[in-house]
């Protein structure tokens, strides 16, 4: 068993990316906004991916970046966008003592496990993977050789797991409707006209200068249309299109109605 020395380059990489990974983890836990948390986590995962590559596991590094960072985290963001923000982002802790206890226990756990690992692996020899990969055997080939021989059964079972997960997700996300309960267009239309609001909901940015999701629609009198607020985003002050405000421009009907100030409650919300 030949001890392979760890090169200076790797040490440099570790000491740069290690703090970055830590910062990402802490940022994920500490940031109020769930979207920010996801982005912090992406940061940590990318750093870990690099660690994999450095530690002679280029295949895993690629999978980490493509599957984890690319696919899974995007799935997270998707669900975040669907669910939106709510009170769970509040920083107020509702369970008494939970935060303090969690931090104390966490520090204790980290201390114990870290000390234990450090003590146990202080003089751990680094064998390196040169024997199984390298030369004409790539990392992927080494993994595949083992995966399709010794771990074949586990691999096949994994496929069953994935199928089950896919079906399970569909079952859980699916909304069951009895046949025939789907409403026709006529019924939908009728139901809509029975409400206080027969017209369509305003889209974002109507009458506004911009049309981003963050820009709510404006009502004809210039107030913000609450229906058009996007979830998860603070409604912004909308920069309005210029509109007639003066007496001369309004003409006679407005005169008669007394709507002299076109936006009396603007920006009230």
């Amino acid at each position: 068993m030949n001890d392979v020395a760890i090169g200076t380059g790797e040490a440099v990489v570790f000491w740069i990316l290690g703090p970055i990974a830590l910062a990402g983890a802490l940022g994920m836990v500490l940031s109020r906004n769930a979207v920010h948390s996801a982005l912090w986590l992406v940061n940590t995962m990318l750093a870990l991916g690099v660690f994999y590559v450095v530690q002679e596991a280029p295949f895993l590094g690629a999978v980490q970046i493509i599957v984890y960072t690319g696919a899974i985290m995007i799935l997270f963001l998707f669900v975040l966008m669907l669910v939106g923000r709510d009170s769970s982002d509040s920083v107020v802790e509702t369970l008494r003592g939970q935060r303090v206890a969690a931090i104390v226990l966490g520090i204790g756990f980290a201390g114990l496990v870290g000390a234990g690992i450090a003590r146990a692996t202080q003089d751990l020899p680094v064998t390196g993977l040169a024997a199984v990969q390298g030369g004409d055997t790539s990392n992927i080939q080494a993994i595949a050789r083992l995966l399709f021989t010794r771990y074949l059964l586990a691999f096949e079972v994994t496929s069953a797991l994935l199928i089950t997960a896919a079906v399970g997700a569909m079952v859980l996300a699916h909304i069951e409707r009895d046949p025939g309960t789907r409403r026709t267009q006529r019924e939908l239309s009728r139901a809509r006209f029975l409400t206080d609001r027969p017209q369509t909901l305003p889209g974002p940015g109507v009458y506004a200068r911009g049309n981003s999701v963050a820009a709510p629609a404006l009502l004809p009198d210039g107030r913000l249309a609450e229906d058009s607020f996007a979830t998860g985003i603070e409604p912004q002050e909308v920069e309005q299109m210029p509109r007639p405000t003066g007496r001369a421009q309004l003409g006679t009907p407005d005169d008669a109605l007394g709507t002299l100030d076109p936006a009396p409650e603007r920006g009230q919300r």
Binding site: G108, F109, L112, G116
Partner: peptide
């Protein structure tokens, strides 16, 4: 939290 507490105890004993 109690699970983590248990894990800490196990780690400590170990």
């Amino acid at each position: 939290l109690s699970m983590l507490g248990g894990a800490v105890v196990v780690a400590g004993v170990l």
